[in-house]
């Protein structure tokens, strides 16, 4: 069991499994001015950094839109998107700053943005939108226009910079990691966390340290697992595919989704992230900053 645990730690939760069920494109966040990496590379390199902790990605291919369309887009965007993403698209209550979004940076006349609008990102709380093609085109025009404006300005309204997070003591963090924090029960600096600071930094590293889900800096590595025992005594194990009060489901070794009424089988879910959730009530703010400082040394 401990082998399973260590393999899964710093990985994925039930929510990320649900994410896999929704074919909405994941956030291929990236930095710098280089061309977009393919989606498969999201987890590594600079592909996993927080849009809010670094220089925003630049538009891959500059586009021009008619002022009239931008104006129409402002109306639709403000009413449908503005609460979460801000009226200026630079972040609102719960939604990210779209002027720093790599989806927007890589978008060419809606080819990346439109699918997100149509499908939503249900795992992250974004609903699907039922918009006309002209409304979608207008929103795309408005977002690009806002990004162009943002690129000419300094700073970010809701930015958390890498430098802001450098208040921890790495040695104290190492001691907490190996001692009171209990992190070493599942993780090791030479194992799963080797080079973690090269893969992620800043806010995303902090968020994934606290509670790693697929939405934060790249895909979720591995799912929670479940062992289901049928009335006959037969046991079936696999990745936890779905769970609510009434249904338990897994993806079996052949890749098939299989579900049962939760009250007609017994099952044991192994969700290693429970330890992360429990730790949130134990960290002091100093502990949190110290462990981050320690993780930043694992290059």
């Amino acid at each position: 069991m401990s082998k399973v645990l260590s393999a899964l730690m710093f990985s994925i939760c039930v929510g990320a499994v649900l994410c896999a069920q929704n074919p909405a494109p994941a956030a291929p966040a990236r930095g710098g001015r280089q061309a977009a990496p393919p989606a498969a590379e999201q987890g590594g390199g600079r592909g996993a950094q927080s849009p809010a902790s670094q220089r925003p990605p630049q538009t891959t291919k500059p586009q021009e839109y008619a002022a009239e369309q931008v104006r129409a887009g402002r109306t639709v965007f403000s009413s449908q998107c503005g609460f979460c993403h801000g009226r200026d698209a630079a972040g609102g209550e719960s939604g990210p700053d779209l002027t720093r979004s790599s989806v927007v940076a890589e978008d060419l006349r809606g080819n990346k943005i439109a699918p997100v609008l149509r499908n939503g990102r249900v795992d992250k709380g974004m609903p699907a939108f039922n918009l006309t093609p002209s409304e979608v085109a207008a929103i795309v025009a408005f977002i690009h226009d806002q990004k162009t404006k943002a690129e000419s300005e300094q700073g970010g309204r809701r930015a958390v910079d890498l430098a802001d997070l450098q208040t921890g003591d790495a040695e104290a963090g190492r001691q907490y990691f190996n001692g009171a924090g209990g992190c070493a029960k599942c993780h090791s600096p030479g194992g799963d966390l080797a080079g973690v600071a090269k893969k992620r930094e800043g806010l995303v590293l902090l968020q994934r340290m606290l509670y790693p889900t697929g939405g934060r800096g790249g895909p979720a590595p591995a799912p929670a697992t479940v062992i289901v025992t049928l009335a006959s005594g037969q046991t079936i194990s696999g990745k936890l595919a779905y769970r609510d009060e009434f249904v338990i489901a897994l993806t079996d070794a052949d890749g098939w989704y299989r579900s049962w009424p939760a009250n007609q089988v017994t099952f044991m879910v192994n969700n290693p992230l429970e330890a992360h959730a429990a730790q949130l009530g134990k960290y002091t703010d100093d502990d949190m900053h110290n462990v981050l400082a320690y993780l930043q040394t694992l290059k």
Binding site: A52, A159, Q207, Y211, H276, A277
Partner: peptide, 26 residues
């Protein structure tokens, strides 16, 4: 639920004037 909350003077004094991110909730 837990969240992380940020504020620095650069965030200003208008509207949200800060940044926060949900971490986990049940």
């Amino acid at each position: 639920a837990y969240g992380i909350y940020f504020y620095k003077p650069e965030h200003g004094a208008y509207g949200w004037a800060g940044a926060d991110y949900g971490v986990y909730g049940n």
